[in-house]
Amino acid sequence: MTDFITIDVLILGAGGGGYPAAFFLACAGLHVVMVDPIGNLGGDCLAEGCVPSKAVREGALARVMSRKYKFFGLDGTMPAVDWQGVLAHKDLVQNARYAQHTKEIAGSTMVFHKGIGRITGEHTATIAVDGGTPLNYRFRYLIAATGSRPHILPIPGAELAITSHHLFRLGADLPMPARLAVIGGGYIGAESASMLDHLGVKTTILEATGELMPGADPDLRTYLTRCLGRRVDLICDALVTGITQGAGGLRLSYRRDGQDLTLEADAVLMATGRESVRPEGIGATGLSGSGAIMVDATMRSAIDHVYAPGDINGRSMLFHSAVRQSMVAAHNILAGGQPVDRLTHPLIT
């Protein structure tokens, strides 16, 4: 017979969709357990997204500031790029934030596990604790906040491409490419291309639609397309069909205006969006389907005791959206599942 530890709330994922709710509910006196394979807070935002990318961007902007020297009566040369130094700065920023989070975890009544949770029943889960004995929990509420991962185009040679994970992860050791091809002109592709161009990389963006940032405000799309198109090679209406390894690097094939064309690069960055990741065994709760979990305005899924804030629901795959959604879920759990606070209402934090 399996022995279960009974708790109020199990939270799978310690990113923006998970940890705000965890601390809030623990402070309210609930017995909260949170599980994350990274072993710290921040999710992909800190591990390989917003934080490290902005650290690299900071270095890129500092370098190209020299282009404006003449406007201030200054003179000088543009600094050379120490790519390993840029990555070391990124790691320093990430580790500083992780150290802060470690103290926050230690100061909370929440129980935190480094590991992977698997749902085994409607109200039960097994936690494969990193380096420890598996633990079995029985919970009243589940917050599924397992986030998202880079979407990979189903094209031949996709495995030859890198993603934001390889570029920005802690301890990234990719060599600096002289020529970079970016597949996708969304916010990840556009930002990465912009910062690497500032660091001296010859960059090309291939976007399947007619402008950068599809889905964003039309004026913003037009403005970014015009401005970034002055600095990098921008190829719109390009359908990428494959990647192959050549003698001089990678060859990217694409179709545009009815023609089959190719592009040579040292590295190809796959920046074609992100896809939701469901917890292992989530179907055991009674939640059917695959991909993003549909939720209402309170972040509750089709199963009354299961909430899914953050990237997992696909509504707004941004860190600050996840934080807001996490707090919405927490408020509704405190209300016993009654829909008291929704995305359209202000919250007490």
Rank of each mutant, 00 (worst) to 15 (best):
T6L: 02
T6K: 14
F23C: 01
F23H: 10
V35W: 01
V35T: 10
D36K: 02
G39V: 05
L41P: 01
D44S: 15
G59N: 09
A62E: 12
V64H: 06
Y69H: 13
F72C: 05
M78L: 15
P79A: 00
V86A: 01
L92Q: 15
N95T: 14
H101D: 15
K103V: 10
V111F: 01
F112D: 03
G117A: 15
R118K: 15
D130K: 11
G131F: 02
T133K: 07
Y137N: 09
A144H: 02
T146K: 02
R149Y: 01
H151W: 05
I155Y: 00
P156E: 14
P156M: 11
L167K: 07
P177A: 00
A181K: 00
G184M: 05
S194W: 00
L206P: 09
E207D: 04
E211H: 14
M213V: 12
M213L: 15
D219E: 11
D219T: 10
L220E: 09
Y223L: 14
G229P: 08
V240T: 15
Q245P: 00
D260W: 05
T262Q: 09
G273I: 06
V277C: 09
A284H: 12
I293L: 05
A297V: 11
S321A: 15
A322N: 07
H331G: 06
G337P: 12
R342P: 01
L347H: 04
L347E: 02
